[in-house]
């Protein structure tokens, strides 16, 4: 009597189970569907960027980067990122420290507000600054009278980029700092270390991988932002054209080699971002 259930279990245990023919069909269908989808939507466009950029040979490709307007666009993009990323990093630390280290009312509301720019269309992100500082905007008359240009100039580009990339570092740091807790910081303070010393010697080393990831992501978005910057820049060649805007101009002029050559630089940046992300995750840091 007692042996029967065990016999049943043995039979189940030796059943081929997952390696049946149906299982194999499902498996290959899923893998094939995934690959076809990704090939059409992702891999083909990525390969096209390279193919189009090199369509007229390496000479034409490199000639693009000798063009002064292209160089000006690259310089403007670098300047914008150099200003925006450090500011947003400082903000990320301030937000992380106040939210993760202290308990106060309205905390989750504050976190929602920090995420706000992610939910807003890039066009609106640019437009709000036009409404404030544009010629017919709230401060437009005042700025014109005092000869200050924000819209169609560098400050507008920086502001719009700052808005769009505002949450990236903070979003990495806040959950990470919450997760790691305050014990070490409290110990350091109790033992007599000052606030800044504690921050630089205790907190900063603890969050370094999350910080690196946040900065890299923020930088990629800052250099690649199109919609918001397009609204505030005015598209003045050689002056207020960032790399993504320069791509649009070259493309609309049917200068495909030029457009895709500049695009290939931004694609390399995106690939580098993903490589850093993968390396950071390999250190054991997981994005929540």
């Amino acid at each position: 009597m007692a042996s029967r259930p065990y016999a049943l279990l043995d039979e189940v245990a030796t059943r081929p189970g997952r390696d049946t023919a149906v299982s194999a069909v499902v498996r290959w269908t899923f893998i094939t569907l995934s690959m076809v989808f990704l090939a059409a939507l992702l891999f083909a466009p990525l390969a096209t960027v390279i193919a189009m950029a090199l369509a007229k040979g390496l000479g034409a490709y490199f000639a693009t980067f000798l063009d002064p307007d292209t160089r000006a666009a690259i310089r403007l993009t670098l300047i914008t990122a150099l200003v925006v990323v450090p500011i947003n990093t400082v903000f990320g630390f301030a937000a992380g420290w106040s939210i993760a280290k202290f308990e106060f009312k309205g905390k989750s509301f504050l976190i929602t507000l920090i995420d706000l720019p992610l939910a807003v269309s890039p066009v609106i992100s640019g437009m709000i600054y036009v409404l404030l500082f544009g010629l017919q905007g709230w401060f437009g008359r005042y700025l014109q009278d005092h000869n200050i240009s924000i819209i169609f100039a560098l400050p507008g580009i920086i502001l719009a980029t700052m808005f769009v990339t505002f949450p990236y570092v903070a979003r990495e740091l806040i959950p990470l700092m919450q997760q790691l807790g305050n014990d070490e910081e409290e110990a350091a303070i109790t033992l007599g270390a000052g606030g800044w010393l504690t921050f630089f010697r205790v907190t900063l080393p603890k969050v370094r991988w999350g910080l690196l990831y946040g900065i890299i992501l923020c930088n990629a978005r800052a250099m690649g932002e199109f919609g918001a910057v397009s609204v505030v820049s005015g598209h003045i060649r050689g002056l207020t054209n960032t790399m993504p805007l320069h791509i649009e101009i070259l493309y609309n002029e049917y200068n495909f080699v030029g457009a895709f050559a500049v695009a290939s630089l931004l694609m390399l940046l995106a690939l580098a971002t993903l490589v850093v992300k993968t390396l950071v995750e390999r250190t054991g840091y997981r994005r929540r």
């Binding site: 992702l42 992501l217 993504p244 457009a259």
Partner: peptide, 13 residues
């Protein structure tokens, strides 16, 4: 990749 790639690049590609 679509998250890291600038939208202008994915647009023209």
């Amino acid at each position: 990749m679509p998250f890291a790639l600038p939208t202008a690049v994915s647009g023209i590609a």
